[in-house]
């Protein structure tokens, strides 16, 4: 069945690109600050709801709400860092561990309070339907989201390698003390990378809202997979998270198709286990 094989590869790539985009924000925050952002999935949920409400109230197509999601989540990320996370960074390890977890519970319950636990879908964007390419069905919103994910990831990559701020983030990631000695304001870098991490997942939320249902707990599903992706790619490695996202997407659809769909997540985590057995630091971690 080569047609179904190709179909599954295409589907795997499309969901994989989405995982990548969700995971690169998470890995950035981890790399710079060494804290696990458990609220990452909830940032995604807020991005999705932002896009949903902009569409419902102002009729703004999700594609145009991407910059707004980016900005809003950037501000939210910085605010959460400044007012909550930075205070805890000086505290004990356990406090650092639970603070983002608390933010996660707070955000998802706040969403239940304001927007009820109902499911919502944006169904009338101009990104609807499927393309039939030689017998393979390609969902238009998923394809656009995949392209968007690649472009966003390349932008982040260039930003990190070419700009001074990006290099400062990388330097902080590699060695905080030395970066501080070189005159980098690491506190500013912290809040900036928390903001960028949140903003990236906001963009992912806007793309995801074009084809996935939106509800307050939606972040949990993607958040859990994002952790596996980040660990597989190597904590802190943006390229690693990008490649690992695609790998996880492919493993999930192909593994599910060729073995048994009920084992698809087991296959994903098996690959993860084998990888960290051979390379404990992840694919591209150091």
């Amino acid at each position: 069945m080569p047609e179904q094989l190709l179909q599954q590869i295409v589907n795997g790539l499309m969901i994989g690109f989405m995982y990548s985009l969700v995971a690169i924000g998470l890995t950035l925050i981890w790399g710079v600050m060494n804290i696990v952002n458990f609220a990452h999935g909830d940032f995604l949920m807020i991005g999705m709801f932002t896009s949903f409400w902009l569409f419902t109230i102002f009729g703004l197509d999700p594609l145009f709400s991407i910059p707004i999601c980016f900005l809003l989540l950037f501000i939210l990320g910085i605010a959460i860092y400044r007012f909550i996370v930075s205070k805890v960074m000086k505290g004990p390890m356990l406090a650092q561990l639970v603070v983002t977890f608390g933010i996660s519970i707070f955000l998802s319950n706040l969403a239940v309070y304001f927007w009820t636990p109902d499911f919502r879908l944006i169904s009338t964007t101009f990104l609807q339907g499927t393309w039939d390419v030689g017998g393979i069905n390609i969902s238009v919103p998923k394809a656009i989201a995949s392209i968007g994910s690649v472009i966003t990831s390349i932008c982040l990559f260039l930003f990190m390698k070419k700009t001074k701020t990006g290099k400062a983030i990388l330097a902080t990631e590699m060695n905080r003390e030395s970066a501080l000695l070189m005159g980098i304001n690491t506190e500013r870098i912290n809040s900036l990378s928390f903001g960028i991490g949140a903003a990236l997942v906001g963009v992912a939320g806007a793309f995801l809202s074009t084809y996935y249902y939106i509800y307050p707990q939606v972040g949990g599903l993607f958040g859990t997979i994002a952790f596996a992706v980040v660990a597989l790619g190597g904590f802190g490695s943006i390229e690693g998270a990008f490649i690992a996202g695609i790998l996880v997407g492919l493993a999930q659809t192909l593994g599910g198709f060729y073995f048994d769909p009920s084992y698809k997540y087991a296959i994903v985590f098996m690959i993860y286990l084998i990888t960290i057995w051979i390379r404990p630091q992840g694919l591209l971690g150091w």
């Binding site: 179904q4 179909q7 599954q8 589907n11 795997g12 969901i15 996935y212 599903l221 993607f222 997979i225 997407g249 999930q252 659809t253 192909l254 593994g255 599910g256 198709f257 769909p261 698809k264």
Partner: peptide, 10 residues
């Protein structure tokens, strides 16, 4: 699940 394309493929 986040994605069920392999189920539908089957």
């Amino acid at each position: 699940a986040t994605d069920v394309t392999s189920e539908v493929g089957t």
